[in-house]
């Protein structure tokens, strides 16, 4: 293996569209960068911004949030809530000094295995170019981690 930086990208995704889309990429034996790790919730509407903060605080170099296309949500409109939350999350992350390219929202349906592959590769490349986030080293980690702990109750 070379000394090339290998980022870790946490993928927070819904069960019905994006998780199934990633399954389809697998069934079709498409190949993509091994840097992404999927974490499944039932609906992208379940994705609490605290999850994203926790991921960055613990060592993620990038976070992908992914769900069904608007209008196709398995739970009618949970993804629209995600869509509304995302700009606020992005603004907050920017205030923390996290580059915008490190967090991304994508709609990937159950039939879009190829889109999943494309996004996984693209994001791996972009985050690799940015270099490690090193949140634990770079910033005062306590407030962020503390917030997440508080939220976890």
């Amino acid at each position: 293996m070379s000394d090339r930086f290998e980022p870790v990208i946490a993928v927070l995704c819904c069960n019905w569209c994006t998780y199934a889309g990633a399954d389809l990429a697998g069934t079709a034996r498409m190949k993509y960068a091994p840097n992404v790790r999927l974490l499944r919730v039932m609906c992208s509407g379940r994705i609490d911004p605290a999850f994203v903060l926790r991921a960055f605080a613990e060592g993620a170099d990038g976070v992908l949030i992914a769900g069904c296309h608007p209008g196709d949500c398995h739970y009618i409109n949970g993804n629209l809530k995600t869509m509304r939350r995302f700009p606020q999350l992005k603004t907050m992350l920017a205030q923390f000094g996290i580059e915008p390219a490190r967090v991304r929202l994508e709609w990937i349906s159950a039939s879009e295995g190829d889109v999943f592959v494309k996004v996984a590769n693209e994001m791996t490349g972009q985050v690799r170019a940015l270099g490690p986030l090193n949140w634990k080293v770079r910033a005062a980690v306590e407030p962020v981690s503390g917030l997440a702990e508080h939220h976890a109750g």
């Binding site: 974490l39 926790r54 939220h151 976890a152």
Partner: peptide
């Protein structure tokens, strides 16, 4: 929340 956050930390 605890379960998901534990997963994230474990990653």
């Amino acid at each position: 929340d605890q379960q998901v956050l534990a997963q994230i930390s474990a990653l």
